[in-house]
Amino acid sequence: MSTEDQDKPLFSELPEWADVVPIPQYETDAPIAPILYSVEYKDATDYFRAIVKAGERSARVLQLTQELIRLNPAHYTAWQYRYETLLSLSSSLEAELKLTNSLTFKYLKTYQVWHHRRLLITHLRTPLPELPFLNRCLALDAKNYHTWSYRQWLLSHFIDDEDLWKGEIDFVENTIADDVRNNSAWHHRFFVVFGCGVREGEEDRARVIKRELIFTKQNISLAPNNPSAWNYLRGILDHNNLPYSLLTQFVKPYTVPLNPNAVDIVDLENPPPVKGAELPCVYAIEFLADINEKAGDKESLLKAVELWKSLANEHDTIRRKYWEHRVRDALQSPASA
């Protein structure tokens, strides 16, 4: 609730609203489970119900809905009615976008404020200034679901806008550098690289896949116990139908305790774990087990079972039931016969 305008008059006190008869919410005096509204909120909603009932579309409706949205940004009917009123009055959508900017910053976690934005940009077709705006939102909340899905909608809706798209890989690279564990950023990378089809300059898929693998492996070497990076690694391989065994050599050092005597070597293909790494890493053991399960021979299967058992009993005990399920599942497959 707003506290900033204590002295603001109620709609019932304003002469320009004197012609409207406010409609209370319930006819009964004491409904069950009521919300104990403030006077301002009750006042605004009583007038809003009256306006909706009359079907009025006017400038004062914009005033009323703006006030109501300020009091309760999740009031979807107020947004919906406001949108229809804007269109029917041919109001300036540029001005509306400006107003929405400040509301967006304030109510980052509200569905409606983001959807309203989407409706406006669909009409205005001005996607480019959205990017710096979204970056400011992400600076406030780097994992905000609405902000990220809005960004992905924007890029999808304006898929052919090269200016909109050209900086996106660099942007996502920086976001992951800010926090390598930001899963929203990793998901966005997948969206940009694999989710939206092949863009100009990215036609050489072998090169793109190699680039993505190297990027991910480097980030794993920096902080191995990061499920976001391992999931992305799996995502690259699954999406492109590549076998996990391509990465056997890379994964192995992460499945055993850290070797304190390891010498620093620069190997782009197989970057080793950093000094502070806490190993063995659960995700690496899981990955190696998957490689062994896929290999198809009995010896590899036994190796996979052994790895799963080590997860179940030692390294990832909370998920013991799941790892035992993996063992059972693998033993049902034809390879185990």
């Binding site: 926090d179 564990r181 930001n182």
Partner: peptide, 10 residues
């Protein structure tokens, strides 16, 4: 949860 000596916001 292992942070691998590499702290980030997360």
């Amino acid at each position: 949860t292992a942070a691998d000596g590499y702290p980030t916001a997360t």
